[in-house]
Design a protein around this nucleic acid. Structure first.
Lengths: 353, 353
DNA sequence: GCGAGATAAGTAAACGATTCCACAAAACGA
DNA sequence: TCGTTTTGTGGAATCGTTTACTTATCTCGC
C-alpha cells in the first residue's frame, strides 16, 4: 500500500474501483472504461492520465461486474467422471493450454458416473454462467443435455449422445478402428479364442469398441452374439478389469487372448494376472485401448492403441471457443482422432490348433 | 420450453430473472429473494406462490449477479505446476470432494513452475473474485503471495513460503521424517554409499527431504556437504530422475543405494535402469518419496514413503473454507501428514564391506 | 381501546462494470 | 461563413441480485 505515503489508509478491505480511477484521473468512468477496453475514442492525453491513475491505485477491473454486464465469464467447465484419472487430466491439460491464451479459465468437476451429480453440476454451472462446457457425460442425462445445448455451447468428450436434437460438437478417438486393429493383430498371431472386457454398452465408446471387435472377428467367420463365451461387461474401472479377467480365466474354456477396452480395465486385469501367476504373454496375450501411464515400466508392456489425449483436449478447446464466438449457432461437428498401435511385449504367436 | 404451452415464446435467449418470478407470483423481488435464500420472514402462502412461480418459469438465480452483491463466488482455485500430474490431481480430488458439499467449485490452473504464469494466474483469479486459493507455488513469487495473502484466503500446498508476513495456512507431508525413515532402512540393510536425487533446494519440500537424508546419514557418522559425491539436484521431473541416475551410475565410484526424493524422479530413474540393464535390487537398492500410481505393477515395486494425498486435499479444503468463513482473520496454521513406509522389492541387504 | 413491539411485504439503493445516448467542440466541405 | 460530419466526453441506464430502510398490518398486555 505504498501509494498512500503519509496518509492513513482508512479502509484497506474495500478494493479500488473504476470510480476511484475516474476520480484520480479527473475523467468520467465511461472514459476509464474506454481506455481499459480500447473501445471508442479518447484523447491520448486523457488516456495517459487514466493509465497513470490505474498504476498509482494499482487498479484491476472486477471480472464479476464485467461478467454481469457482458453476460460472459471467460470460464469454461470440464465435466469428467474423475479428475484424478490421468486419461482426463491429460485431456484437461490440452484444453487448458489452448484456452488460457484467450483469457479463459477451466473449472473441473468430477461427476463420478453419477446421474445426479452430473445434473446438479450442469445446473450449477449454468447459474455460474460459464461460457461453455466440455462434457464427458455419464450417458444418463441425454434429454437434459440436449435442452441445455441450445442455451450453452457444449462439446462432448468421448461419449456421444443418443439424441438428434443435440446442438454441439463431439470429439473422440476412432474407437472402432483402434479395437479392430488390435483384434486383427491377435488374429494374425493365430488366436481364435479371443475374449474381451468392456464397459457399459449404453456408452458410445463401449459400443463402438465392441463393433471394432465384432468386425474383426467376423473377418475370420466368427459372429459375436449374446452367447459368446469370452465376454465380460463391467464399468471401465480397474476393479471391473480385475473381476473380468478372473471370471474369464477361471472358466473351464479359457480364451488365449484378451482385448481390454480401456486402460483402467487393462491395469485391473494386469493386477489379477500378477496375483494369480498367469504369465503374459506365455499363458495369455493381451491388448488394450488407450495409453497407459509409464507403460514401459510395467512388469509387462501391453500392446495398445495409443491416443493423442493432449491433442484431443486442444481440439475440444478450439471447437468450444469457436462455438462460443459464433453464439452457438453452427451445425454440429464431429472430430475423430485416429489411434496408433504401439507394440509392447504382451502378445505372442499361438500355434494353430 | 413446455411451460409456455400455446404461447409463442418471444425471446428464448433472455433467461428468466427474479423479476419475472416476482411478477408471476405477484410479489416484490425482495420477497422472492427472501424465499430463495430463506432469510427474513415471509408468509407460507406467499412462499408457496413464489415456489410455484419458480417451478413454472424454471427459474434459477444468476450466480454472477449474486456474486457481485455478496462479493463471493463460491469458487476456489487450485494452482499447481501441472494438472496432468497424478500427485496433484489426487490432491485436487480430495479438495473437490470436501468443498462441493458446501456449494463450492474448483478452478484448476497449471503454472508449469513458471514465475510469470503463477503471477498472471494470481492476478486473474483475484479479478475473478475467487473466494480462496490453494497454491503449490513455484517459489519465485513469495512477496506477491504474501501481499495477496492479506486480501484473499490462501492455503499453501506442500511448498512453504520464506516470508514472515505471509497470512495463511500450510499443509504438507512430513518430508523430513519420511526420507529419514527410508534412509534408515537402507542403512539397516548395510548400505553406506547412499546416493540421492533431489529437486531444487529453494523449494521447502526439497530442503526438508534433504534434511531427513542428512540426519539419517549423520547417525552413522557421515556428514553431507557440497563435496558429497553421490548427489544430484534436478527439478523433480522424470527427466531429472533419468539424468541423475545416469550420472551417478556412470561414475567410477557408484553408490550401492539411491534415495529418490519424489515419485517422478523415481519413475525417471527406473526408466534409466531398465534401459541400461541395471538390476534392482541386485545391482542397486532404491527407495523413493511419495506414492506411485500402480506401483505394484511396475517391473520392480519401489519401497516408498507413502502419502495420503486425498486426505491432504480434503484437509486443505477444510482449512481454506474455514479461513473464508472467518474472513481470513486467523493465525497461520500448519498441518503435517505423517508418511508411511510401504515396502516393495527394490531394496536388498548388502554384506558389510 | 390503545400504544408498543413484532411481523410481513415493498421500495429503492447498492455492487462495479459496460454502453447507449446526448451533446460540445473540432474538422471539414462548399 | 455556415451547415454537416467527425471526434471526444460525460451522464445515466443497465445487468440481476441482496439488503437497508420504510411502511402497513397484526398481536397483545395493561
Amino acid at each position: 500500500m505504498h501509494f498512500n505515503k503519509g496518509e492513513i489508509v482508512i479502509n484497506t478491505l474495500r478494493s479500488v474501483t473504476i470510480k476511484d480511477v475516474a476520480a484520480a484521473a479527473q475523467v468520467s468512468i465511461a472514459t476509464v472504461s474506454r481506455v481499459i477496453n480500447h473501445t471508442g475514442t479518447v484523447k491520448p492525453e486523457l488516456a495517459d492520465r487514466v493509465q497513470q491513475a490505474i498504476q498509482e491505485l494499482n487498479y484491476s477491473p472486477n471480472s464479476v461486474a464485467r461478467s454481469l454486464k457482458t453476460a460472459s465469464t471467460s470460464t469454461i467447465a470440464f465435466l469428467v467422471s474423475n479428475i484424478s484419472d490421468p486419461f482426463f487430466t491429460t485431456i484437461g491439460r490440452g484444453i487448458e493450454d489452448y484456452i488460457k491464451d484467450f483469457g479463459y479459465n477451466l473449472i473441473v468437476c468430477s461427476i463420478d458416473s453419477s446421474k445426479e451429480k452430473e445434473l446438479s453440476y450442469l445446473q450449477m454451472l449454468k447459474e455460474k454462467m460459464v461460457d461453455g462446457i466440455i462434457l464427458n457425460t455419464t450417458g444418463f442425462n441425454d434429454e437434459a443435455i440436449c435442452e441445455l445445448s441450445h442455451q450453452l455451447p457444449i462439446v462432448l468428450s468421448n461419449r456421444r449422445i443418443n439424441a438428434s436434437v443435440f446442438n454441439g460438437d463431439f470429439v473422440d478417438n476412432d474407437n472402432t478402428s483402434g479395437i479392430y486393429q488390435l483384434t486383427q493383430h491377435l488374429i494374425h498371431l493365430g488366436h481364435r479364442k479371443i475374449g474381451f472386457i468392456n464397459g457399459p454398452m449404453h456408452l458410445s465408446t463401449a459400443a463402438e469398441r465392441h463393433k471394432g471387435f465384432c468386425d474383426a472377428m467376423k473377418s475370420i467367420g466368427i459372429t459375436i452374439d449374446d452367447s459368446y463365451p469370452y465376454a465380460y461387461y463391467g464399468n471401465f474401472s480397474a476393479q471391473s478389469g480385475y473381476d473380468g479377467a478372473k471370471k474369464l480365466m477361471k472358466a473351464e474354456d479359457r480364451p488365449t487372448a484378451l482385448v481390454l477396452m480401456n486402460s483402467e480395465l487393462a491395469l485391473g486385469a494386469l493386477r489379477y494376472f500378477a496375483e494369480s501367476n498367469i504369465q503374459i504373454p506365455e499363458d495369455l496375450s493381451i491388448v488394450s485401448f488407450g495409453d497407459i501411464h509409464n507403460r514401459e515400466l510395467l512388469y509387462v508392456t501391453p500392446t495398445v492403441a495409443s491416443t493423442n489425449l493432449m491433442g484431443i483436449g486442444y481440439k475440444m478447446g478450439e471447437l468450444l471457443l469457436d462455438r462460443i464466438n459464433r453464439k452457438n449457432e453452427i451445425a454440429n461437428r464431429e472430430v475423430c482422432f485416429v489411434t496408433q498401435i504401439s507394440y509392447g511385449n504382451s502378445t505372442k504367436e499361438i500355434p494353430a490348433e
